[in-house]
């Protein structure tokens, strides 16, 4: 019931924040954080975790989360850019998925219209196969994809999303035609996972967290991660360590509306700096299993600009975006 399921998810919710301790001038900040997605998803969880950490640590006096779901964030960003202009107390959570979604949706509003503030977290993609699959590692998969990309079916998230991009890059990296991969998008995490567990597809690709409990239970085999090297808390090799030059992270970040002053921008960046160093935030990262990928201010702006160009190239090379 995937299509109607999202209907239940829709919602614009603001949770009145628990008033934090007033400790400094910046603590007067009353933030409004937009999660351009329905409650429950990754962006929403990021926004609500920020809300919790910001108010509990006293970095902001209050923080309110507003959900504006729709089309990979396209609806949210349009509203954010139009109604938030010049407001130094607003933030929007976004991530790599939005970069791709804005391109595939041909959104009239782009990320260039926002003011980048900071990248917060990252999650790496995991490639998994059913436990009884003949594919034992990434090299086996590479050989299979190279032999006939049509016969290797991939289950992952929405078309043009990070899962799809990673699958296409994998094919490209191992010398197969990335436009010929047999990628099957599923809309809910559960449905894709069921297809992988049931052996309906060859390989599954998604954020590591989606598969964690199945891997630990021995129902799925982890054959590769898209991190640069082996991760300390995960028992599995990266693709790079197996000789496949693919590195991609599903990062999440916050941006501010257009037209804010330099002081307002600095205040927001400072607040994020403090958030990143706070004990509360560190604890949340640990509890949720998110990797700290902190990058703020101009460095993040540069990264965002580069990633947009790179993503567009990838999407065009796999035929998901034309021109």
């Amino acid at each position: 019931m995937i299509h109607t399921r999202k209907s239940l998810w829709r919602g614009a919710i603001a949770v009145a924040a628990v008033a934090g301790f007033v400790t400094s001038a910046a603590a007067q900040m009353e933030l409004k954080i937009m999660a351009p997605a329905a409650p429950g998803g990754g962006w929403d969880q990021t926004a609500r975790s920020m809300q919790q950490a910001l108010t509990q640590s006293g970095i902001a006096k209050s923080a309110q989360v507003v959900n504006v779901p729709g089309a990979g964030g396209s609806v949210g960003i349009a509203q954010f850019v139009n109604s938030g202009k010049g407001d130094g107390n607003q933030l929007m959570v976004m991530g790599y998925v939005m970069v791709g979604a804005l391109l595939t949706n041909k959104s009239p509003v782009t990320l260039d219209q926002t003011t980048p503030i900071a990248r917060l977290t990252a999650e790496y993609e995991a490639l998994v196969v059913p436990a009884d699959s003949p594919i034992k590692n990434a090299k086996d998969l590479a050989a299979a994809v190279k032999a006939d990309p049509a016969k290797v079916t991939w289950a992952g998230g929405s078309a043009g999303g990070v899962d799809h991009i990673a699958a296409a890059l994998f094919a490209k990296e191992v010398g197969a035609d990335p436009t010929k991969i047999n990628y099957i998008p599923f809309s809910g995490g559960g449905e894709a996972l069921a297809a992988i567990l049931g052996g309906k597809v060859t390989v599954g690709i998604s954020g590591y967290g989606e598969f964690e409990s199945q891997i630990k239970a021995g129902k799925l085999r982890l054959i590769g991660l898209t991190s640069a090297t082996k991760l300390p808390n995960i028992d599995g090799q990266s693709l790079k360590d197996q000789g496949i030059n693919l590195e991609i992270a599903n990062w999440r970040a916050v941006v501010a509306p257009p037209g804010i002053t330099a002081e307002q921008k600095k205040a927001l960046v400072d607040a994020m700096d403090k958030l990143n160093k706070s004990k509360e935030w560190t604890e949340i990262l640990k509890a949720k299993g998110w990797d700290d990928a902190y990058l703020s201010g101009d460095a993040f702006a540069k990264f965002l600009a580069e990633d947009q160009v790179r993503t567009k190239e990838v999407l065009m090379s796999v035929g998901l975006v034309k021109s």
Binding site: S213, Q214, A287
Partner: peptide, 28 residues
């Protein structure tokens, strides 16, 4: 049994489980 959230409510309950560091799944 599997940690598969197959409805929006189930997905929310999954998020609720995870809030306590619990992962529904074969091991739960």
């Amino acid at each position: 049994t599997l940690g598969l959230p197959t409805s929006a409510t189930a997905a929310m309950m999954l998020a609720g489980f995870q809030q306590y560091g619990l992962n529904p799944g074969p091991l739960l």
